[in-house]
């Protein structure tokens, strides 16, 4: 039996489509964890990245924090939080957020920094307030890069939330972890397929958001 057979068998089994361990419920769980973590990480990373990028201050400190945060192994952090804090959403959210903040923060900072200074100078000379310069001049131009940072964070969250099943969390990772434990390879491959599809859907969503949100003037001159 090859992988495709497993996939067919998994999705063909109607028992996998309802109930607490059914695909819709597990998918919903996974999406919920991911969105929550992404929301928290964005709430931290975006404002800090925008302000430091606009003022140009704190870039070195930021790079240091990002390098340190990147060196932390997310799976290790997940297990550590679990053994320290026990079962629950918090021990999972902490590593997911720690994981997602650096790409958002650093990319946003870089994105705003790399905006051509002359329109910013022109805007200031025309009497725009600083917040307005940031939001109306810098952000629209930096948007593709900012979105790519958010995308990286989202992809990593979806991936790591899968591993969270190991510490008894729900989500699509359950199929993989339970399947490995039960030696039910059909379930393992089914879960892996779902997770991969979710990751690709995430990519697609970000691609679509970029198409809609980025001005054609920025998209095409890029």
């Amino acid at each position: 039996m090859n992988v495709l057979n497993f996939v067919n068998a998994f999705f063909g089994d109607s028992a996998h489509w309802h109930g607490y361990d059914g695909i819709p419920h597990r998918l919903l769980e996974h999406v919920q964890y991911s969105l929550t973590a992404l929301g928290i990480a964005a709430a931290i990373g975006l404002p800090v990245g925008l302000v430091t990028g606009h003022t140009g201050r704190g870039g070195n400190a930021l790079a240091l924090v990002a390098t340190a945060a990147r060196a932390l192994p997310s799976f290790g952090l997940l297990v550590l939080m679990f053994v320290l804090l026990g079962l629950g959403l918090l021990p999972v959210m902490i590593p997911l957020v720690v994981l997602a903040v650096p790409p958002i923060l650093v990319t946003t900072y870089e994105a705003v920094r790399s905006v051509d200074p002359s329109p910013v100078d022109a805007a200031r000379g025309m009497g725009m307030t600083e917040p307005r310069i940031l939001l109306r001049v810098e952000v629209p131009v930096a948007l593709p890069l900012i979105l790519s940072g958010l995308r990286s964070a989202a992809i990593q969250i979806v991936s790591t939330a899968t591993i969270a099943a190991y510490v008894s969390l729900g989500g699509l990772g359950r199929y993989i972890v339970d399947g490995l434990y039960q030696r039910d390879y059909e379930k393992v491959v089914g879960g892996a397929t779902l997770v991969a599809v979710l990751a690709l859907v995430t990519l697609t969503v970000f691609w679509a958001v970029t198409r809609v949100a980025v001005s054609p003037g920025v998209r095409r001159s890029a």
């Binding site: 022109a122 000379g125 009497g127 629209p140 920025v218």
Partner: peptide, 21 residues
């Protein structure tokens, strides 16, 4: 400062146009 600047036109070397508008 901002109302002062709004009362003056300002033109710079590379035009400094807003590429998203």
């Amino acid at each position: 400062v901002n109302s002062l600047r709004r009362s003056m036109g300002y033109v710079i070397q590379n035009a400094g146009l807003f590429q998203h508008r």
